[in-house]
Design a protein around this nucleic acid. Structure first.
Lengths: 342, 342
DNA sequence: GATGCTAAAGTGATCGCTAACATGCCAGGC
DNA sequence: GCCTGGCATGTTAGCGATCACTTTAGCATC
């Protein structure tokens, strides 16, 4: 029954510091929070006592009384996909830079109930605010359930949403990609799209179509895929059988890689026979053969904007405050996978 | 001054539920924690009251009194690199599956003070335990500073460490890769290594050398790089100038891709002139040209082992308990980047 | 009918902190 | 002299749960 050897002496609290410094615990609290009305001499004594005891303030207790945890929750899908991961990483960095800790509620899938539950879990932890990375329609519905007074920012949600949203201008990126192929002299551009339900997919289709229409080009049917390399490969096999398909805009670099592999296997060269443009600028993009022309979204900028927007809500500016931020515009990165038709 | 419309009615607490159900707060607590000695009828009344008020237990308060937060902290570098990200994702999944929430302390760099500080931040949040993903020597030092009684698991740390460590058998993976090239008929195998300070780098070098020595093959000098594609490219340029280099084991798929690009540019074909094997099995590996033979670590298995190990510490089994787990063994994935010399 | 035992509930203290108010002290103005 | 007021500090009351007791009720036993 005497159990663990070594006294189970718990970590020192404010009272311990106070006793050692010969003041009341409240004075210790004041020193801790930088309250002005403390004599310099006292402050030093308290600081010394803290040092000596190795005192660390208990954030949990503080959170209980203030109701503010200084933790920002991130809701994201549990995936290693490049895009979402990059956004997440960038958001974490920005959140930390703003002096907040991060709590993660990663969900297996982005359906309504999973997201609602994830937000609930974060709420139970009394997070100060939430960043939701959920660029799919099903996620958007869940967002209606969240209490109005919870500071929140959505990344990559419904572009039709009016507030608390930060996005990349997917449509503009898609236009860039398509125009680049058109400018190389192609009559039209085929499109391998991402999965249904993703705003990224839908917006990229829209941008592609717009660019085609603007140029008076024919609009071929969309080849629907998901985000996997395999799906790109399958779409590529289809494309390889159509000699008229000479230019392809793939909705992601992974899809583009799949397409190129299928094309290569079918004996069609890139960019000789077929030009290809991707989207995301994954690190590998410049190292496949041929190096892939693609569109680069600025994830860091998105994250910064999101955190800034969240912070403004925490500062108590009206919840429906800043009407709508301009989406972050991506840039075209030209490499060697585009050539004129021959 | 009347500020927000709508009474700032705070979220209901146990007392509110108790009042509505006509019991004491303690009974509510008992219902919440599934304590046996509660009459079925009472239990139902309390449940109904909770439902009606939309009651959610305050985890913060619970943590304060129990000292247990049911949050597992993850310390990891803030990066989107495939390996670390995959591990992290897998760990989050396992932690969630075990019924814990996750708090992340991502650090900009894996140096000693950053890690110590990150752990400190997590400690302040009273995390139940910590998973440190830090496969570098500088991180290992920081681990000596952590209090003995904090449940902790290190992923990818010093293989010499005796306990609380989960690793991938990097050395075995490297042997697999090297032997595969040797088995194809090559006299020897060159190695492009990861950056100094990473256990992954060091272990892979060791495994490579072992396999060479076992086969009685000559051991060429190591070409040191970091994890970037670019570094692989540079190493590849070197290799391309050495006609005798016919087989290369790159310490990661990214490095392999860089090497292959340089080789291709120099007019040397893979695997015709030079065979290449990578490490990691990134999703793109099967889609580069030629599809890359590589070594696949089982990240999910590592994560599960880590969480199991952590949980066993939480359950109060002795801190220095299970001596040492066997490292997770990776598997060779054969594709088309290896061929006999000609 | 007093006693004992157990299930089902209640009471009060406590976790470590902050907020609000109370106190003591010393300056200045009527 | 006494009030007013700003400092520097102490005191007390929570925040919302759990924990260690105590109390009450119900029933079998002596």
């Amino acid at each position: 029954m005497d159990g663990a050897r070594g006294a189970p002496r718990r970590t020192p609290g404010m009272t311990d510091v106070a006793r050692l410094a010969g003041v009341s615990h409240q004075t210790v609290s004041r020193v801790l929070n930088g309250h002005p009305n403390v004599k310099e001499q006292t402050r030093l004594r308290v600081r010394a006592a803290m040092e000596q005891l190795g005192y660390r303030p208990n954030r949990v207790a503080r959170t209980l009384v203030t109701g503010q945890s200084h933790v920002v929750g991130i809701v994201a899908q549990n995936t290693a996909l490049y895009g979402p991961t990059s956004v997440r990483t960038a958001v974490e960095r920005s959140v930390n830079a703003a002096g907040f800790a991060v709590g993660v509620a990663s969900v297996p899938a982005l359906d309504r109930s999973s997201i609602a539950e994830a937000i609930g879990r974060l709420l139970d932890q009394r997070v100060a605010g939430v960043v939701v990375i959920a660029p799919v329609t099903s996620a958007n519905e869940a967002l209606d359930d969240v209490p109005d007074d919870l500071p929140m920012v959505v990344i990559g949600g419904d572009p039709g949403r009016l507030s608390r949203l930060v996005t990349i201008d997917q449509r503009h990126g898609a236009r860039l990609a398509t125009r680049c192929l058109l400018a190389a002299g192609h009559d039209t551009v085929w499109h391998v799209s991402g999965p249904a339900g993703w705003y990224d997919s839908a917006e990229r289709v829209l941008g592609w179509r717009e660019a085609l229409l603007d140029a008076g080009a024919e609009v071929p049917p969309v080849l629907a895929a998901d985000w996997s390399l395999d799906a790109g490969y399958e779409a590529g096999q289809l494309l390889a059988r159509m000699p008229s398909a000479r230019a392809v805009f793939a909705a992601s670099d992974h899809l583009a890689m799949g397409v190129m592999k299928a094309l290569r296997q079918a004996g069609r060269s890139v960019p000789g026979d077929v030009s290809v443009v991707g989207f995301d600028d994954i690190p590998e993009a410049g190292y496949v053969c041929p190096p892939l022309t693609t569109v680069r979204p600025d994830f860091a900028a998105v994250a910064e904007q999101a955190v800034r927007l969240l912070l403004s809500q925490l500062d108590g500016s009206p919840p429906d405050g800043p009407p709508r931020l301009a989406p972050v515009v991506p840039a075209l990165v030209e490499r060697d996978s585009v050539a004129p038709p021959r």
